[in-house]
Amino acid sequence: MSRDLRNPLQRARGLGSAKDGVGHWWSQRLTAIALVVLVLWFVVLVLGLLGHDYQAVRASIARPWNALLMIAFIIAAFWHAVLGLQVVIEDYVHTRWLEVTSMIVIKLLAVAGVLAGVLAVLRIALGS
């Protein structure tokens, strides 16, 4: 059926039809492994903060370990979300311009989200 006369090795070197080889797949799994730990930490943190007032919540997030883990959580979560949403778009959006537009919007939103989140944590941690 295939009219592609290239040697399979040649095609493999071109990283396949996705153009990025298994990079996407690996990033999704690595962020997933990181999120297993970070989600557990996040849930325990939030449950521990229930009923506390503004000052207490802020002081808790400001502690170095919590601030560090929160930044890691934000980056890993948004990265993982972009990779997942990208696959959903690739699978279901068949109008090319809409597919590319959605991809750009989602990536820019994620970058904006990470920047806003990291800045918020830094302001909380550094007290400005």
Binding site: I61, M70, I74, A81, G113, A116, G117, A120, V121, R123
Partner: peptide
């Protein structure tokens, strides 16, 4: 959850 992560973000920004 991707949508929900925006709410986490909202909470953090509000806290800051």
């Amino acid at each position: 959850l991707a949508v929900g992560s925006l709410v986490i973000l909202w909470g953090l920004v509000a806290l800051s």
